[in-house]
């Protein structure tokens, strides 16, 4: 018997604005990405020292996950994490590459190198919310609702998890975009490819 699954909650972070379930909850006039993230961190009233060593991609993944999971009890839930984006970890990759381009100015840093993997943000969310669950990071030209719908459905229907934190988290050359959502048996918006596409585009 197929479970009835829904998009329980969704949020987007782009153009210096945060909206949750379609409602604008925060906006700022900052120009730099890192300044905007700082404002968001303060707005969400988070106290988490590990946040400050993260790269921008992990910060964006972390902040969006805070918004989605803040009222959700993940302790009792097996919540999978399936994220995707376009630029993988290239923002940090370029920074790391610059540190090794010049033989006379060669300073590879392990603290930078570890963030040259896009799935590190999933690790950060897992640690923060103690999610010892199914996870994976995927890369597409743009948000692929067909892939997300099918994979999320598969994990839920095959009892690999009870809910899925999923979506798009991209950082590339001073531009950023996050669209995250939680799929579970709760909620009213049916989990369909069409609905995911529509929520992403609004």
């Amino acid at each position: 018997m197929l479970k009835k699954t829904h998009i329980q909650k969704y949020c987007s972070i782009k153009n210096n604005e945060i909206s949750v379930n379609g409602d604008l909850v925060f906006s700022a006039d900052t120009l730099e990405v890192k300044d905007f993230f700082k404002d968001v961190y303060q707005f969400l009233e988070i106290k988490y020292s590990k946040y400050f060593k993260m790269d921008l991609l992990s910060k964006l993944a972390f902040l969006s996950a805070e918004i989605i999971l803040n009222e959700v009890n993940t302790k009792e839930k097996n919540t999978a994490i399936i994220l995707s984006n376009n630029a993988s970890s290239l923002e940090t990759d370029r920074k790391y590459q610059n540190s090794i381009n010049d033989k006379d100015n060669y300073f590879p840093s392990p603290a930078v190198f570890v963030y040259t993997l896009p799935n590190i943000g999933i690790g950060e969310i897992s640690i923060r919310h103690q999610l010892k669950s199914e996870n994976g990071f995927f890369v597409f030209e743009k948000y692929n609702a067909n892939f997300h719908y099918n994979y999320e459905k598969s994990l839920l229907q095959n009892n690999k998890c009870e809910s899925v934190l999923a979506g798009w988290v991209n950082i590339d050359k001073n531009s950023y975009e996050a669209f995250l959502y939680l799929v579970s048996e709760k909620g009213i918006i049916e989990h369909t490819e069409q609905n995911l596409k529509q929520l992403y585009n609004t």
Partner: peptide, 11 residues
Amino acid sequence: AGSCNDANHIS
């Protein structure tokens, strides 16, 4: 198949 996170450390 199964793929689960440690939720312990990133590196």
